[in-house]
Amino acid sequence: MTGRVEYRSDVRPTAAQYIDAARRSTLGERLPVDEPDLIQEALDRSDIVVTAWDGERLVGFLRAITDFRLICYLQELGVDADRQREGIGLALQVEMRALLGPRCKIRVSEAPGATGYYARHGYARHDRSWELLPGDPLV
């Protein structure tokens, strides 16, 4: 039996809590979960961190970088695999959007395991993004 989920944007999880939740979601495979200091720095430097708690257990999380007026980059959205399809991911996004200005766009890169998720929730495909990986030369 699961309890009532509480959504918070005023309290950030520790790196250990975030890593534990990431491992219980599909994001643990793509995040550097073996580097808690790096995860902590990412949390500390993020503009928005919204969390979903079932009691003391972190069951969902969202991390974003934004200027709050024009653009918001949704970096990570993860929900405990046992709690997916309960609306937690959507609720996290609603909480994030409430923090943004009325003209602020949200952009996200779809994770391999999330095919179709964002389209189902109103996002339009944006195919004009590029990526420069760490160590790749800027020429």
Score class of each variant (00 low, 15 high):
92 L>R: 02
93 Q>G: 10
44 D>W: 08
61 F>L: 15
107 R>C: 04
4 R>P: 14
109 S>M: 15
130 W>R: 06
62 L>C: 14
4 R>Q: 15
125 R>F: 05
25 S>L: 14
45 R>K: 14
99 L>T: 07
72 C>E: 01
133 L>P: 04
49 V>T: 14
83 R>L: 15
7 Y>P: 07
2 T>S: 11
67 D>W: 05
33 V>H: 02
120 R>Y: 06
24 R>P: 08
47 D>G: 12
113 G>P: 00
27 L>T: 04
100 L>D: 03
1 M>E: 10
7 Y>D: 05
7 Y>H: 07
119 A>L: 12
99 L>D: 00
11 V>L: 14
46 S>K: 09
3 G>P: 05
123 Y>W: 12
30 R>E: 11
109 S>G: 12
70 L>E: 09
66 T>P: 01
61 F>Q: 12
51 T>P: 02
30 R>F: 15
40 Q>S: 10
67 D>R: 04
120 R>H: 14
28 G>Y: 00
85 R>S: 14
51 T>W: 03
123 Y>F: 15
20 D>H: 08
102 P>H: 06
125 R>C: 04
35 E>H: 08
96 M>P: 06
118 Y>H: 10
35 E>R: 11
17 Q>C: 05
136 D>A: 15
108 V>Y: 01
38 L>M: 10
24 R>Y: 07
10 D>H: 12
62 L>H: 06
69 R>S: 12
38 L>H: 09
20 D>L: 08
96 M>C: 14
25 S>G: 15
53 W>D: 05
11 V>F: 10
110 E>W: 02
97 R>Y: 00
